[in-house]
């Protein structure tokens, strides 16, 4: 059964059609990549899944449940975590605190208990911290653990954002351009991590990415998008060889 299923989703901003009658399904345990030129509607698809945008028509379901019934903050509770294209971290908090916010959906204690720091809060905190430290180990973030985000280099922030998403213990991870702005080495690290996230943690990954090298090396299936509509879908090799895709990228007559 597919984990995430988008059916005939359409979204318009004024007269502009951002997503045009798009259907896709992501199978459990796969790495699925969305590629396409700028403005093709890739991030918009993510924002539809995150419930930041309400689709005009169509349906989105996750793990058999209708996602459109949920509000944006309930999406995380279902086990969907995401990163952002332009990094949206909590700048005036430490790396550790950022990752701990990722654990927010697992909190069980009430406001009053937390005010008095009841024993249960301490127990819960210890459990959260154990989970977060594992992520810190996994992503080699130890040197930055207690550093403020505001002072960290771009590449590290990108990793922290990945870590925050992982800390929530998702079953589906949405990565919005995980390699953009990264150096060759950092992109290489990112590739291994994405691979390990699926292999070791069993998390399904849906990502938007421009770097075709990264896409073809990690993803099982690729969807090419242009003007909000599906251009081609298949293995990385199939999509790269598709004449429609080549035309969209290189212009007519290049074939």
């Amino acid at each position: 059964m597919s984990l995430l299923k988008i059916k005939d989703a359409t979204l318009k901003f004024g007269g502009v059609v951002a997503v045009d009658d798009l259907s896709l399904s992501v199978e459990e345990g796969e790495i699925y990549a969305i590629v396409g030129p700028n403005g093709a509607g890739k991030s918009t698809v993510f924002n539809l899944i995150s419930r930041f945008y309400q689709p005009f028509s169509g349906s989105i379901s996750f793990d058999g449940q209708n996602l459109l019934d949920r509000s944006a903050d309930q999406v995380a509770d279902l086990g969907i975590a995401r990163t952002f294209q332009n990094i949206e971290l909590f700048d005036h908090a430490t790396v550790l605190q950022n990752l701990l916010v990722g654990r927010h959906r697992h909190r069980k204690t009430s406001m009053v208990e937390e005010l008095f720091f009841a024993p249960r809060v301490r127990r819960e905190e210890l459990a959260h911290r154990e989970a977060v430290e594992e992520i810190i180990d996994f992503l080699d973030l130890q040197p930055y653990r207690d550093k403020m985000i505001a002072g960290l280099p771009y590449g590290v922030r990108k990793v922290v954002e990945l870590g925050r998403a992982l800390a929530s213990g998702p079953s589906l991870l949405l990565l919005d351009e995980p390699a953009s702005g990264l150096s060759v080495e950092e992109t290489q690290d990112m590739r291994w991590w994405i691979d390990d996230i699926r292999k070791q943690m069993g998390i399904t990954v849906l990502m938007v990415e421009h770097d075709m090298g990264l896409v073809s090396s990690v993803s099982d299936r690729v969807l090419a998008l242009a003007d909000g509509a599906k251009l081609a879908e298949g293995t990385p090799a199939q999509v790269q060889a598709d004449p429609a895709v080549i035309e969209a990228y290189l212009g007519a007559g290049a074939v």
């Binding site: 903050d73 909590f90 990722g102 927010h104």
Partner: peptide, 18 residues
């Protein structure tokens, strides 16, 4: 921590379930 999250980025706080 949720307070700080709301302060620094409402968008990603929401995505984290706040």
């Amino acid at each position: 921590r949720a307070f700080a999250a709301v302060r620094d980025s409402e968008v990603s706080a929401t995505a984290m379930g706040v």
